[in-house]
Design a protein around this nucleic acid. Structure first.
Lengths: 342, 342
DNA sequence: GTGAAAGCGCTAACAA
DNA sequence: TTGTTAGCGCTTTCAC
């Protein structure tokens, strides 16, 4: 069923039907009701391609996910996108997903812009001095960054968690529990969040006058394998860490595996703390430090980002929007480095 | 830059330019070259909305992800979609992502179909007696199921792993290592994969004349929390399992956490085995049974599914395509129920 | 308050 | 081998 058919059925012009459906004020209330009733009766849905061609608005938002051969699709991105998707459908927008390897990145953005298939994009995983920001500004394509480029003080919209603060808090918590040797399993150094997380970690350690041991600070793709290897290495030292602060689920899985092995084989005993996503979603680690979190925090961030972007698209002249999400730690039961003390 | 402008620059009709760009045989080779050169020079990209309006083909595929409030966006789906996305862009297709809660499911499919924004869809997480299959057939929208509905012997296309066989193999492996009490952490019962996995598990146990203990068989959303609670419960029995077979990454994270706690507190000693995704992606569990896997297996499946769907769209009269992916287990070092034996 | 007609950017008959 | 024309399904002037 298309407009033509619907208006034929109603004995009205396409124009009137279109206006009625789009809530133009001038149409007679009676006809509007009649039209809307018929539309839902026949399950009429305007063809979004035709609409977008006529209006020049794609009614779609692009999400461009960087992937590389070692790291899986970051589950946090997936969660974030799920949240965004809900916001889009509420507003009648579609979500276009594109993946890109780093070498094709710029061309992917350029193509998307010139194809006109989206009205804006969400940029994931910003890097330090990320070239995508100026590229998008040049292309004049509205965007919101999921994260931030701290090296760029220019005007752009972003939504981010307070990586520094959340890692500061988490580290401080471990320190307060008595841990002095804490291993940090972090993302690759070029990613902004990893830099900020390190800063928070470092500050907490320094504040407590603890020295950093570079041997138990790790950077890399946030994979299960990397988590495993890093933790295994850390635990093999004669002086192993008593706690881990981990930057992702995936790594955490590997870290737990390594700890399991170490427990079994060497009797090594650690308390683990896992930082799990960009919204300071801390995992409940059982009887070791306990944090509450809901998965929905990530989805919420996705929704927020989507709404930010849509409002920018609606009113292009608005100043850049930014949103900093604070860490949400809730401390439950706690365990120090030496369990037998508790 | 659009067709009109480009053809003006070239002093050719839009038709000719269009034909040259789309490799119609009749155009003069010289003009084709000239046109293509100009197109790339001006970075001309056809407006996909206009194209799709003119051709009646959306040049887009929809992925519809079921989400619910407790389970996060399944990372396997994310990975699968990343693979599919690559296949689409190679063929000039876009990927439209939609999320749906179970109560709105049917209307989401209907809306997608009537909006005409996709040429086909991939259905994730099929259930037993899934109504979506007949719905899509009725809507006449090409589709491929990621998974299968075993209750439906009708003609439809799917790609699936051999859930039954892989869980059979995994269970048998654990049995061969000497385990007799194995806990199964599985997805919700209405999902096909969970049913099949249980079948494989059951068969291996029965073949070995081991009795199933319903107390250590769990069904539920594949979340970290559920994994934790299930494993904690299992480990609290006076006669705890010596091995776990787990249906997902997320649950595995919880299971490991529970084991960690149990190791610390009760000296409970388990070997873990984790089944991790729908492609029999088995995690290396360190010094306990070791399986090789690459993340790309899931992406590959996504690519395959995408290619299947595109070929169905190209030739709608082809018979349904199906693809069964076999489990890929590789046994490395192994550990029986009583580590001290090894 | 409603309708006729043009046009968004492209493709596809039909001509030439 | 190229061009003219109509039309995909919608919105949007401009009339009435």
């Amino acid at each position: 069923m298309n407009l033509k058919q619907l208006s034929a059925k109603l004995q009205l012009s396409q124009t009137t039907v279109s206006r009625a459906l789009n809530d133009y004020p001038e149409v007679n209330e009676a006809t509007r009701v009649r039209v809307k009733r018929a539309a839902s009766k026949f399950n009429y849905q305007p063809n979004i391609r035709a609409t977008s061609l006529a209006t020049g608005r794609a009614k779609a938002i692009g999400h461009i996910i960087p992937i590389n051969s070692s790291e899986v699709f970051n589950p946090i991105f997936a969660e974030f996108i799920a949240g965004a998707s809900q916001a889009y459908s509420k507003r009648g927008y579609e979500l276009l997903l594109t993946t890109t390897e780093s070498n094709t990145e710029e061309s992917v953005y350029r193509t998307i812009a010139s194809k006109g298939s989206v009205d804006g994009v969400i940029v994931h995983a910003p890097r330090f001095k990320d070239s995508r920001i100026s590229l998008l500004q040049e292309l004049n394509l509205p965007f919101v960054i999921h994260g931030r480029d701290y090296s760029n003080t220019g005007d752009y919209s972003w939504i981010d968690i307070n990586n520094r603060q959340s890692f500061y808090q988490a580290t401080k918590l471990l320190i307060d529990l008595g841990h002095t040797r804490i291993s940090l399993i972090n993302g690759v150094e070029t990613l902004n969040f990893a830099r900020r997380r390190l800063m928070g970690f470092t500050k907490a350690m320094t504040d407590a006058q603890l020295t950093l041991d570079q041997n138990i600070l790790f950077n890399g793709d946030l994979t299960e394998a990397n988590g495993y290897h890093a933790a295994t290495k850390a635990l093999a030292f004669k002086n192993p860490p008593t706690a881990f602060l981990v930057s992702s689920y995936m790594s955490a899985l590997g870290v737990r595996r390594a700890i399991h092995n170490a427990n079994l084989q060497m009797g090594v005993d650690v308390s683990v703390i896992i930082h799990d996503d960009e919204l300071s979603y801390f995992h409940n680690t059982g009887d070791v430090p306990q944090f509450t979190a809901t998965r929905s925090s990530v989805m919420e961030a996705g929704m927020l980002a989507a709404e930010m972007l849509l409002s920018i698209i609606d009113k292009p002249e608005t100043a850049p929007l930014t949103k900093l999400l604070e860490a949400r730690l809730t401390i439950g039961a706690s365990t120090g480095p030496n369990r037998s003390d508790t």
